[in-house]
Design a protein around this nucleic acid. Sequence first.
DNA 1: AAGCTAGACAACCGCGTTCCG
DNA 2: TCGGAACGCGGTTGTCTAGCT
Length: 368
Amino acid sequence: MVRPPCCDKLNLKRGLWTEEEDAKMLAYVSKHGTGNWTAVPKKAGLKRCGKSCRLRWTNYLRPDLKHDGFTPQEEEMIVRLHAAIGSRWSIIAQQLPGRTDNDVKNYWNTKLRKKLSEMGIDPVTHKPFSQILADYGNIGGFRKPGTRVGPLNKDLKSAIMLKSEPYPAARQGFPNFNSQLMTATISPQKEPIQDTLFNNNHTDNYPSDLLAELQAIKLVTEASNCSNIETIPPPAFAEASLSSSSVSYSPTCSATAAQEKASLDFSWHDFLLDDAFLPTDPQEQETTAEYSSKEFASQKQKGILQISDTDNEAATQESNTKAKAIECAVISNDFEASSSSDFAFVEAMLYQEYEMLLDFPNLEPFYY
DNA sequence: AAGCTAGACAACCGCGTTCCG
DNA sequence: TCGGAACGCGGTTGTCTAGCT
């Protein structure tokens, strides 16, 4: 492992902090405050680098930090935000007073990720594993009969190893199973994430960059909802990737009666055995994409995508930049053809790997 | 009692961004 | 405008501890 040059040169201490060091840090910060961390260790009489001091302060010593366990509400918040924006831990932590990004990240990695896996949900995409498997098996219609299912992510694999039955935790009374978490993640959401986080009553509470993120999230999630009007997706899973171009949408769409009915009639058992997400009719998919991009452009012109907070020009600009990125993905021909060209590319990749694995049966597929 | 393992969490590392002279 | 220092972030590693064999 390569040590930072500063620590090597100055023979600075590393590793866990002692109580004495903590006391020195606290004494110094309470007297002088934070700022210029490179000067802090010297002034505080610590043989640490500034970076280490800053980390110790922000992650542990800060007086406003909570050191107790996460509440179910906090869990739910983390899951929802992770579904919406991915591993942007600092942004997620901002929504949880007294929690640091490190806290949230550690909690996710040690608890929540496992919990979701055990519930049959891929913690990366927040989709049921069965759907991912179905998607995988149906990409471009590619899969040779009788062949192995190729590379899967680690969480999916471990979940499959655990049990093929859907949501074993929920069905078998998993000891620490949290029903709220289940609701937040997999049930048909009565209150979609974009509504929960983005409505006017709440936006004041979010920093501008998060607002920008949320605006993009709103666009993407609405896109997901609207692109499946014929085959309603049971949960309104928020797409984690903002750069995803595999969605088509109309920003103004709202839940239809058909959607509501479908939600009520929804059965997880059926869903998990079903391949409901995949477009069945290529023409319909194309039409939807075309309509959506036009509709999007129209809405954009009307200024619907602008952030209402006129006091914050920077936020507006940033938001527009991000919204534009989404717009590009939606409007470009590449997007409209995503189902064919992207799949063709993926198909080619998968086939290459398939052939390679045939030639080298002992070779581990990537994704590990 | 000793060794092993997994879980929890603290700390580190590298890299991108921001700030400032 | 540029370059270096400082800062912030996300991923990864290290360490400690409890439970099990």
